[in-house]
């Protein structure tokens, strides 16, 4: 089933635009990446950088109108998902690509019992009978660590705490053993202890089932601990793409450097927390040149004139910057 090169998912030149009164917002603009079977890919970026839209585009859930996937390919297991019929894509959603959302408080139906919501998945995709689906739902709840799963399954979402709801969401997402799990900021709405538990759980389940994961987050700590590859997004573009180790050790993009500098250092006695100056640009009215130029420490004339090239720095390391090589060398790397 998989391609010869072992890619489960291959996104090629994806562009998703939103038509607004204010003009066309290029939320995702010419994005390409691959995900190998069993790997975890992290996508980081500020709010509005196009992380979520990228992933909604993969399973074709971009709200249309105003959103529209303008061009590109999303090759999953050798099939272009963007060319599938609505019925065909629905058979893939949940069955082979599952999604976990940011806010567990609102992503469960408040009027349905937890068990019902879990059962719906397997009845729909695996053709389970009610009894089978119910047994499976309880097994899944046990897997994600909900105590007294049999009784708890009959609760409504409002009787669950945030952490338990996210566990239930994960149980739901994994109940058909999907090949790809897209987790859209799965821990943003949770407090830190629960965050750690949920991430640990995703890691464990990934090890056990071999599911590939796309993890969207703006928490660099989460990326460091969870992922094999990282994509840094800014203004709908991929700014840097590398293995996690390499990205943290030798960043090749000024934006990534800024992000890494913004992480609080717990060992620092005092001092000010670094922040990247300025605000993300309005993607509806991008100026020519690099979208990050106004906020960048490395800006020179060329940055406001010409759009930067996507420079290859290493076997698996790309950076969108006029001075990618210089930044990379400065970080201690040797560009190829």
């Amino acid at each position: 089933m998989a391609n010869a090169d072992g890619n489960l998912l291959e996104v090629k030149n994806l562009r998703t635009y939103f038509e607004t009164d204010d003009g066309i917002v290029k939320a995702v603009d010419d994005i390409s990446f691959q995900l190998k079977r069993g790997e975890t890919l992290g996508i980081v970026g500020e709010s509005g950088s196009g992380k979520s839209v990228t992933n909604l585009s993969i399973i074709r859930l971009v709200p249309t109108p105003p959103g529209k996937i303008v061009s590109g390919q999303v090759v999953f297991n050798g099939n272009d998902l963007l060319l599938l019929s609505n019925d065909a894509i629905r058979k893939i959603r949940g069955r082979r690509i599952a999604m976990i959302f940011q806010d567990p408080m609102t992503s469960l139906n408040p009027f349905m019992k937890i068990s019902k919501q879990l059962m719906e998945m397997t009845e729909l995709h695996l053709g389970h009978t009610k009894a089978q689906a119910h047994a499976h739902a309880i097994r899944m709840l046990e897997t994600v660590g909900i105590p007294d799963a049999r009784e708890r399954a009959e609760s409504y979402p409002h009787e669950f705490s945030g952490g338990m709801r996210q566990r239930a969401m994960i149980a739901m997402a994994l109940s058909c053993e999907p090949e790809l799990l897209i987790a859209d900021e799965p821990t943003t709405a949770l407090d830190v202890t629960i965050q750690a538990q949920i991430l640990e759980l995703i890691k464990k389940l990934k090890r056990e089932t071999g599911t590939s994961v796309i993890l969207i987050t703006h928490d660099l700590g989460v990326v460091a601990g969870m992922t094999d590859h990282v994509i840094v997004m800014y203004a709908g573009k991929i700014f840097e793409q590398a293995t996690t180790k390499e990205l943290f050790a030798v960043p090749g993009n000024p934006y990534t450097k800024g992000l890494l500098r913004s992480v609080p250092d717990p060992t620092a006695e005092q001092g000010k927390l670094y922040q990247i100056p300025g605000l993300p640009p309005d993607v509806a009215h991008l100026k020519p040149g690099c979208p990050f130029a106004q906020r960048c420490d490395y800006t020179q004339d060329i940055c406001t004139r010409e759009f930067p090239p996507f420079v290859q720095l290493n076997a698996d390391h790309y950076s969108l910057c006029h001075f990618a090589r210089e930044v990379y060398s400065e970080s201690g790397g040797t560009p190829v």
């Binding site: 058979k91 949940g94 959302f101 806010d103 469960l108 139906n109 408040p110 009027f111 719906e120």
Partner: peptide
């Protein structure tokens, strides 16, 4: 536009089912 509807769509539930099993009970 609530997230649970998006979540239901992301699990491959059909539109008819979303309307009558997920949304209508919430309007009760």
């Amino acid at each position: 536009n609530q997230e649970f509807v998006l979540a239901a769509r992301a699990t491959g539930v059909s539109n008819t089912r979303i309307i009558f099993r997920h949304i209508v009970p919430n309007t009760l």
